[in-house]
Design a protein around this nucleic acid. Sequence first.
RNA 1: CGGGGUGUGGCGAAGUUUGGUAUCGCGCAUGGUUCGGGACCAUGAGGCCGCGGGUUCAAGUCCCGCCACUCCGACCA
Length: 477
Amino acid sequence: MAKDKKVEQITDMDVDFTQWYTDVCTKAELIDYSSIKGMFIYRPYGYAIWENIQHILDTEFKKLGHENVYLPMLIPESLLQKEKDHVEGFAPECAWVTYGGSDKLEERYCIRPTSETLFCEHYKNVIHSWRDLPKLYNQWCSVLRWEKTSRPFLRHREFLWQEGHTMHATEDEARAETQRMLNVYADFMENVLAMPVIRGRKTDKEKFNGAEETYTVECMMHDGKALQGGTSHYFGDGFARAFDITFTGKDNQLHHPFQTSWGVSTRMIGGIIMTHGDNSGLVLPPKIAPIQAVVVPVAMHKEGVREAAEKLLETLKNAGIRAEIDLSDQSMGWKAAQYEMKGVPVRLELGPRDIENGVCVAAKRTGGEKLTLPLENVAEAVKSVLEDVQREMYEKALRNLHDHTFDAHSVEEVRDGCANGGFARMMWCGDEACEVKMKEQAGVTSRCIPFDQEHIGDTCPVCGKPAKQMVIWGIAY
RNA sequence: CGGGGUGUGGCGAAGUUUGGUAUCGCGCAUGGUUCGGGACCAUGAGGCCGCGGGUUCAAGUCCCGCCACUCCGACCA
């Protein structure tokens, strides 16, 4: 019997974290596999999470003056090749369109892996004067990269994202934009997704192809591995020169504008799952949960229960809470397990006893004793509980980050400390050869050079030369 | 791209050694009894056994070839 029940359960995360992750993705009904490797179906519940993320971020972008646009999905090969570093990075994972109908195309078209080149082609046409700057464009779309291995949300061949592309008259302004958008991402992840982040700069080895600087927000998953939450790139005027984009300045001279791009993707959903999830399944931050509160009537056949539950639902909805009700004839226990699996932040139980007492019972997904909430002013009380859940999730994730971050003074320390998950802070000379050695000898990659620097040593433990900065090392998804 | 593993109703598996009517659990449908943490009874629907060849009176099972998925590496701006 117990063995049969297991069909409905998910793998214990301590036994096999990878399998646990896949179980959550499918059993919480976020995603389904399609017939093409690496191309996934976002089911309603999973897509709703993305829609909530989109809505909040889109609002933030627009507050800062960004405008949404939509560019073609195909890039002519000649266009892609205009910037040398860029094409070198992406060529190995491009998919190509070579036929139109039954005719072979004169030139093959790449399905966009990212849209820098398309934006540049367009910017060349619309930027002429300093009065045309800055251009602050953003695009919501999917991109395609032919990855060899794939995992739900973390590595798709086709994935959903937003890509912001901006052009500025001065280097200072473009650099400021790069930082500004990195902070938008960092704040979003911490305040909305309840995921603490480390803000920093990528090493030259890890930065975006064609960029002068890449900035990143790095997150720690429950198993101590790293996930890059979002990136923001400063391009200087490299692309502008390659694409011959110029504008006439106030000085009546021709100049090249300075460029940025920045993006986050549905990979963040993978981050949410692996940051907050537990052995009962998904745990969703209230701010992006498709269902924030679910009403579960108890003993529905008893008189007045169903009506009272539906009234409670209406009260919550009218107060702006994303609430649903479960009127199915599944048992109490089944429903409890089901909504825990789906990560619903708060479950509200309402039975004859509660109705008599004018209360309902709230169970937080983050655990703890069940709460008794008076039905009078219940919406306010539920909102308060949702805030508690949001805060508790952030605090728990922050503890995990702190507990698995350590200072290291040798390659061995990093290797041993990161083997089972963790971030190592270690001084670095800045030489790429040492970075390569870290991968070979400790199995880690540099996650970032954090903005918050600490001087924890004088020399690079790899080569013994004087150290320039502290780097975070870890094993990444 | 290298090494391992797996392909049987929607899901998880047994059956393959030794060829002989396609099995089990979950889920699903209908009706009923239940109902405060994964309920129960009854009835029922659902299967090109990954694909293609071959051997045989007979192939899920044996032989050959292919494909897909998955794990571990490599790779992954």
